[in-house]
Design a protein around this nucleic acid. Structure first.
Length: 274
DNA sequence: CAACCGACCTGTTCGC
DNA sequence: TGCGAACAGGTCGGTT
């Protein structure tokens, strides 16, 4: 499940591999991935002939800034992938919904089995995402605003961390990992955290996000995240608790608990996380 | 504002 | 063994 570190890995790879390249041809397979359009042909018109000026990111959203002055927004949701192949006749993976044939012969492809992901072109300031909070990497460097945002919320801690309007980019994996490192239960009311605990959580989240980026992301067992070259990220083996319910806590050895909090599963250690 | 729910979708896992 | 049911998960929109 791509979260901030996975999307950041993608952004950096695209920046290195196809910045400056021009889209010679856009080909749509299934139309669901561009469902914001009344007429999907508009998406083709908006992208064909444009070149990639630079790549940006806000939370889990990837931005491809185009030479046209507009921005292509990509969200991978659960199972989306961006794949770069050397030639346009490379074998197609199942569920390839959008193909951008570049003027140098390579092809960037959007692949998405569950079709939750989406792509669209919009104005550079991306008005569709005005509701998003600041990017997590930025917010986590700002102690008062992170501590304040947490301590003003009655919701379960994990619910606040997953709320993209509060801070953008954290998903289930990095929320579980951060809570474990900070020694706080994801089920606690966010407002119940002391300033000390909230700041410890801030530093823990900063650490797990940067570890995740350094490892080129988390690829889960069933998970679909791979980079533009089709390679998995290495961070999963470093996960301390996520998706390890029932297994021994890496600190104390007692079995980790798996619970539902904020309608999402969460894993924590009842002994090490108070 | 908060809590919760359904919808979206399909590959994988589980239970019988 | 084979089958269908349950499940997973990010976001949005709707309801209480």
């Amino acid at each position: 499940m791509p979260e901030l570190p996975e999307v950041e890995t993608l952004r950096r790879d695209l920046e290195q591999t196809i910045r400056g390249a021009t889209i010679a041809r856009t080909t749509l397979g299934r139309l669901r991935s561009v469902r914001r359009y009344d007429d999907p042909a508009r998406f083709v018109i908006e992208t064909q002939g444009a070149s990639f000026s630079s790549f940006g990111r806000l939370g889990k959203y990837l931005f491809a800034h185009l030479s046209t002055g507009e921005t292509m927004v990509v969200h991978l949701r659960m199972s989306g992938q961006m794949r770069l192949v050397e030639t346009a006749d490379a074998p197609l993976l199942p569920h390839t919904h959008v193909r951008f044939t570049l003027d140098d012969g390579r092809e960037l492809r959007f692949v998405d089995p569950r079709t939750f992901g989406e792509i669209y072109v919009t104005a550079n300031d991306v008005p569709e995402l005005r509701h998003l909070g600041p990017d997590a990497l930025e917010m986590l460097d700002d102690r008062p605003s992170f501590v304040g945002a947490l301590r003003s919320r009655r919701m379960a801690l994990k619910g606040v961390l997953l709320d993209q309007a509060t801070l953008a980019g954290i998903g289930s994996i990095y929320a579980d990992e951060g809570c474990f490192l900070a020694g706080v239960r994801p089920t606690r009311a966010a407002e119940s955290l002391s300033r000390f605990e909230a700041d410890r959580l801030r530093q823990a989240l900063r650490l797990v996000l940067s570890e995740g980026i350094a490892a080129r992301g988390s690829t889960l067992g069933d998970g679909q995240y791979v980079d533009v070259f089709g390679l998995p990220g290495a961070y999963r083996s470093a996960h301390r608790v996520h998706a390890r319910g029932g297994q021994p806590c890496p600190k104390c050895g007692r079995p980790l608990l798996r619970v539902i909090v904020a309608q999402r599963s969460a894993v924590y250690c009842a002994t090490c996380q108070g």
